[in-house]
Design a protein around this nucleic acid. Structure first.
Lengths: 216, 216, 216, 216
DNA sequence: TATGAATGAGACTTCATTCAT
DNA sequence: CATGAATGAAGTCTCATTCAT
């Protein structure tokens, strides 16, 4: 999952019982945190309510059903929570750079630095988004959000290309490749503690720098 | 899943009741084919025996248990079948080239051409391999095989670097990035018929050509 | 199953979700009771969760899986429950006697009196313990318990022999023969309501009295 | 299972396709032998057609269904086969004695000697007869046969009692106790190779000698 | 809010049996 | 006779959800 700097982003969600993502009760946040850990550990599909409840110190899965409107709702919250974290972490590092190339590098490296600091968060979101069935009703919203994210970034690339800073290539393919490469590192980091995530980030930044840089 | 040219590789497997992977009976092959379709359609985890049996025209899931020694065994066969197909498709195209750069390009493009021709096959194997839990007993063999594949390719890259054909980079990070980018296209192709997979293949080949090419 | 007087014996078990065998919830006890009836009626192997659930007035077998950690766990509870009942019934009657011969007689007769009063309980435990596969994991504990029981009794016999009250014979063979004879009556009692269990108890007590009594 | 000497015993059975128990084809006998081994090893209920077919060197369970009219039919044949063997072994040893006491001792000891020589055979029959559900249709015949056996022996006991050789006791209870004790040894012998079956036989013979002997 | 109980669907497996070849 | 394939029932287990308290 490639996190990026975005504009204000009205993530207002029609939470159950009129709870927005921002005014989480303690319990909701606790459940979300537990879900993140469990998903990172056993994967999206094996993250059952039972396991999440146990991790959260709850004695029954009913509590989760009470706080969330089904599995999808919980997962949405997990995604939102991680995105919230990621945005705060990634955005300043991207905006610290002027050049497009610098921003691209900052984007890649900050994502993997984030992964190094919060391994479960990125692992969870990667698991969720890569495990989504095609037409999952209710999760579509997040795919759209993700798509919107990419669109913004693709626009940045186009600008860089028009500015002559980037060479000529299909921005969509490039963005997807970058995202896929980052997600791959995130995924492996979950189960391979040996992996030097930050080093991989620098390598990937170099890689995509060469791939995008104008040859002139 | 990045398919590559490999040496003969006696993948002979002690299939159930002394059936090798190569001398499939009709039913087994039919079930494997059905499994490939179902996995491509609904994903690894949702590909239940019930759905596969229905697709295969079987009246009961018991039939699958009869032919395969559990889910893992079936999945192994699916992976083996796809690898068989892929190897025959990809290898000649890679070996038609002399230069390392040419081989890398052929590897990427032939993989995605294969994806265009047999969308379900690559989608299925990608689904399976990306959905494996960490220590899945019985599937470990395939992860090892995959790892071995990558190792071979990494060696090729090192040679190219020593030959001055490729610039300096971490071959493992590069290989993983390539694989991840290809798998991403494969995954999206499954649910997005609009996607021009072959074009994406050419774009990716260009991308990684720039990323690997010696600057001299 | 020969029940005997034993010392307090802290059979405290780490039941599911920290429920001990002693502080059964109503449902657990109800399920155990239903299981006892069903086992006595159709035997250990035919006592499926479905039948037990039906007897217990439950709508699904899932409920049993919810309360017990699998079939073995339920069976363990059944054995524990019967042993609890048996101990309270048998022990006072044995301890009311001073002589070894009197205690042996009390042991045999009280076991079969118990069988007459609670036919299903002893039938169930006999079924379970005689149906156990050799190395059934998880049930081994109870076999050990049973073995320990016999060991205690064998020690009693040895004392009686040293005291000259019993004649010379292999205590183990004797104990097993007694146990087998009692179990046989229990088993037949289940399906033959005509059988006079108490009378058979007195007969067996006479029989083994003659077989153990010192001839002097 | 207490085997005894009986009169000629017309065990003629209406075998499937007019095959009597005596004119077994090779296949039938082979399957029966395999069944005996499997039952002794894993018990009656776990002795599936699949396991028996495998042991018999057959590639499909269908063959068993072809030769036998269902599971009960096969089990009947197993019982008949073992009884045939047992009778030939036990009868001469019993008839070598004149006194009732001598015959009783010979009966017990020869049964356990048989168990020592053919462990699987007696283990199998014990398994089968002790695992029969109450009203198993089609097996009832064998229970009747068994009952008839016991009746004959009970009559012998009555004669001995009238002759003053045995003391006064309930012959049925005594017979059942003897049978149960023997069966118990047989059962344990199956899974405990350490057990000295012949010694146990002598001990049991002594035990029941004391229990039956006239005190005068 | 929180809990434990209850539910019903669905998953995989094993089994005995039948059938076409 | 023999085989391999097919079937349908039954069994245990897990899951997300709902409900009464």
């Amino acid at each position: 999952m490639l996190m990026q700097a975005r504009n204000s982003s009205s993530k207002q969600k029609a939470g159950r019982k009129s709870k927005s993502s921002f005014t989480e009760t303690g319990r909701r946040a606790q459940i979300v945190a537990a879900a993140i850990d469990v998903i990172a550990e056993v994967g999206y599909h094996r993250a059952s309510f039972a396991k999440i409840a146990e991790r959260a110190g709850l004695s029954s899965t009913g509590m989760i059903s009470y706080h969330f409107d089904g599995r999808d709702d919980l997962m949405r919250e997990v995604v939102a929570e991680v995105m919230r974290l990621a945005e705060g972490y990634v955005r300043p590092r991207i905006e610290a750079h002027e050049s497009y190339a610098g921003r691209l590098r900052a984007s890649i490296e900050s994502n993997l630095d984030l992964c190094a600091e919060y391994p479960n968060h990125l692992a969870a979101i990667t698991e969720i988004l890569s495990s989504l069935p095609g037409g999952s009703p209710g999760m579509v919203a997040f795919l759209d959000t993700t798509e919107a994210n990419l669109t913004v970034q693709v626009e940045q690339i186009r600008k860089a290309q028009r500015a002559g800073e980037f060479c000529d290539f299909d921005p969509w393919v490039m963005m997807r490749a970058i995202r896929a490469a980052i997600d791959d590192v995130v995924r492996r980091a979950t189960h391979d503690p040996e992996l030097d995530v930050r080093a991989a980030g620098r390598e990937l930044a170099d890689l995509f720098d060469r791939a995008t840089r104008s040859t002139s």
